[in-house]
Write a protein that binds this DNA or RNA. Structure first.
Lengths: 187, 187, 187, 187
DNA sequence: CATGAATGAGCATTCATTCAT
DNA sequence: AATGAATGAATGCTCATTCAT
């Protein structure tokens, strides 16, 4: 692995373990096993580093959100696929998921980055799915952003409870969550 | 207002505006209009101060969560009351709500404080409401903590979207959210 | 005991226990059981307080150095009396002795105070005793201040070793010390 | 000279001039001509710095105490050599001598360091010299630590008087002191 | 590219001192 | 006379950043 990747991996780990506020460069260099000046060959400063880590995590998430997505499938099938992909991403990449969740509203992340469209524009896919459902009279008429936020919020919240071991998340629970989030927005 | 309250109010404001990591004592003293040593008459260090602010916010929230709660009312009525109280608390006290939301899983907050039971134990009220509904065959059988997390998560997520002005939250939207969170957990 | 004496006693105790550099007013007020402003009714600042404590210790020592001194006694008798008084003072008042020993050369103590003549001028008594012995050909001819310093130094040094329990100091040892210091300055 | 040595030299100077209690980092950095953070590349904190300076001074003293010491020489010759070495060390290195003298009983110096054996164990050499003299019936029978303390005390005390210019210390005085300290412990 | 000693602005915290009560 | 909350200059220390090697 390159020095650059060592540094970014160490950054993500440390933020996950201790929170951004206690991630010092001293800890970072020790963890990444690089000299203290090395980072400045790759990043102009701490903020750029954190933003790069954020961007990488967003790209990774974007790659997962549309996996196995079949635009030809039924509305419910497509909905379930999107929700499941998000949930599975959170289960597989907890550090990345939490990092994105925490920093998406942080002033530390540049606005352009925060609003970047995920690979393949998964955000727009969800939005149009919602509007399509509403046109068909299946999904309740409401502000599509509100609706979007609602179903994302369920996944985020469930994952956070899982991370702190409030409950297990096996196949049964996962199906319950997908159904619940679907029923929440039906007419 | 006492100096102690000045300090705590300034702390909450600054955390809301810039995040904990950029709350320096210099900013704090300027905002609270006190001398730099004054805080140490009330708090041993920064961590104790933040914990005190957290505790106060939790107490405030606890006072709101069970307002107008009628234990004799119907299941749905009681559910709506609890969800509405939480939503209204978030609307009325955005700083306190976000602070609690962000720090409830932070190592900065002492475990005892994090697990404090809210005034009147609103948490238990919700848990038993869920179990009551499950016994009656109204609410879907699932891990009650999962169910609890799910309905809280909807409120939190919706509020965060509102705070960054993704959509308005007036009476129509509020009713939609209450219904959506209810339908999500029905059988 | 008056507040003023409480403060001075606490000061001496704390200097003895932890050294001047770690004697803070906070510790002082706690130990003396007075309010933090009280000291300023008696002393303008910390330096004045320490100087007052020094002066009191010097006065106390001065009162002991000439006890039972018989100007009519023989030279050796008088010498032994002076040395014994100094030694006994150190044994009876270790805090005062060490405090005087440490601060006699410190810039913290005002020059006037450092050079104060002890009650009854015990310093001059010793100096003239030395010169008298030199005139009689009993005490070696040398700078009288050097001689004075030499015999004082023996007592100081022996006491410091005793304080840290290097050896006991009972009647046998005391007699050995008096003899040793006497022999040191004989012709 | 390296930065580390610059810092240690400045520390010793400042302690000598103003006492430990007034050695602030601000003064230290100015005197040593280094940046304020530089010290932390070498010492974890102020206490470690002072201890390092103490250790260096002790090592320097240890190197001087046994200079020209001839184990085959007569008892008096050896005694004079040891006393003279100590006295000359104090004359040549007043800062180091006073620093060691003041801090040897201070809680600021770690116990391990305080009890370090000087290079070549000069302490043990003196102890065995005393015991040898006692066996031969030349030196008075007394606790050997007491005896040791007595002859060291004379040198320390004389040096302190010299430092504040109470008297000169040229060849005549030095010989008087060596004789006096020898006579003090004879039978 | 990679390093790490050196830096100094900025930080949390301490503490002698003041002053209204 | 006695108090202690309030103060802010000063302190020890941290840490992102620079730069000569």
């Amino acid at each position: 692995m390159s020095k650059k990747q060592d540094i970014m991996a160490a950054t993500l780990e440390l933020i996950h373990e201790e929170g951004l506020q206690s991630v010092t460069f001293a800890k970072l260099f020790k963890r990444a096993n690089v000299g203290s000046g090395t980072i400045y060959n790759y990043f102009a400063n701490k903020e750029e580093l954190v933003n790069a880590v954020y961007k990488e995590a967003r790209i990774l998430m974007g790659e997962h959100l549309l996996q196995n997505y079949d635009p030809e499938a039924g509305l419910y099938e497509r909905f379930k696929c999107l929700q499941l992909n998000r949930l599975k991403f959170g289960l597989q990449f907890p550090k990345e998921f939490l990092f994105i969740d925490s920093f998406s509203f942080s002033p530390y992340i540049s606005p352009e980055l925060r609003n970047m469209s995920d690979t393949h524009n998964s955000g727009e896919v969800i939005q149009s799915l919602i509007m399509e459902g509403q046109k068909q009279g299946i999904i309740k008429e409401m502000d599509s952003h509100l609706c979007h936020q609602l179903i994302h919020g369920i996944i985020s919240s469930i994952l956070k409870g899982y991370y702190i071991q409030k409950y297990p998340l096996n196949e049964t629970q996962i199906q319950q969550i997908l159904e619940a989030s679907w029923k929440a927005i039906l007419v």
